[in-house]
Computed example of a mutant assay.
Amino acid sequence: MHLRIIADPEHPYSLEQLSVLSEESITVDEKLGRILITFTPTIQHCSMATVIGLCLREKLKDCFHPHFKVDIKVAPGSHADEESVNKQLNDKERVAAALEIPNLRQLVDECLYSSEL
């Protein structure tokens, strides 16, 4: 899966290099059509946690059929505002609205398509 090449929004490394995401943190159940991704922000108050989640969600669109149910969450205890971040990342309307904001869309695209990694 190509999630490992997503750039971190604040660092010149990939999410995998920063241990934000690992192969073990991704569960794909093709039979049930479900994907669960749990990521660990670099710090408890990471202001980019939502951006990271949006990047993951957008990348999954390229990798899986749209019928898959996708849940993206921060690892339990890894973020000070865990519940709010998880709610935002898994609400279709909030995700769609966030991706319509030009600066945020540009940041997500830069993380997904950075050629520096």
Rank of each mutant, 00 (worst) to 15 (best):
N103T: 10
S114H: 07
G77F: 15
S47G: 08
S78V: 13
L32C: 03
T42Y: 08
N86M: 07
L3N: 05
L56G: 00
D62L: 14
V95F: 09
H45Q: 07
I35V: 14
G53K: 00
A80Q: 08
C46S: 04
E116D: 05
E24I: 00
I35A: 08
P41D: 07
R105Q: 10
E30V: 13
A49G: 09
P66W: 13
N103R: 10
H79P: 04
V95E: 03
N90Q: 01
I5H: 04
D62Q: 06
E16S: 09
R94F: 14
A96G: 03
I6T: 06
G53H: 01
E93T: 11
I52S: 01
A75W: 14
S78N: 13
E100Y: 08
E24H: 05
E110W: 08
L54G: 03
L117D: 10
V70Y: 00
I5D: 11
L89K: 04
A97R: 03
D81R: 12
A98F: 09
E58N: 10
R57N: 03
L21M: 01
E83H: 13
V108H: 01
P102Q: 03
E23C: 02
E58L: 15
S114T: 04
H79Y: 13
L107D: 13
L107H: 11
G53M: 01
K69G: 06
V70W: 01
D109E: 06
P12E: 10
V20H: 00
A7H: 10
D81G: 13
E10Y: 03
V20D: 00
C46R: 00
D81W: 15
L60P: 06
G53I: 01
A97S: 02
N103V: 08
T27P: 02
A75K: 15
D29H: 02
P66H: 12
H65R: 07
V51S: 06
H45Y: 12
H45L: 15
I52C: 03
D8Q: 10
D109G: 09
P76F: 15
L56K: 00
C55L: 11
C55Q: 01
I5V: 12
L89S: 06
H45G: 08
A7M: 14
S22T: 03
F64R: 05
N103I: 14
F39W: 02
L107G: 09
C63R: 15
P41W: 12
P9N: 03
R105G: 05
L60M: 10
H11D: 14
H45C: 09
K73T: 10
G33Q: 02
V95A: 04
Q17L: 08
N103A: 12
L56W: 00
V70L: 06
V85P: 15
T27Y: 06
Q17H: 14
E110Q: 05
T40G: 12
S19V: 06
Q88C: 15
L99T: 11
A98K: 05
L112A: 02
I72L: 12
K73G: 07
T42W: 07
V85F: 13
K69V: 09
D91A: 11
L107M: 10
S78E: 11
L117T: 05
K31I: 02
V74M: 10
I37A: 06
K69E: 14
R57F: 04
I35D: 09
A75M: 12
L3I: 03
C111V: 02
R105M: 01
R57K: 10
H45E: 09
P9S: 05
D62V: 09
D71W: 00
E116I: 11
L117I: 12
N86V: 08
A75S: 15
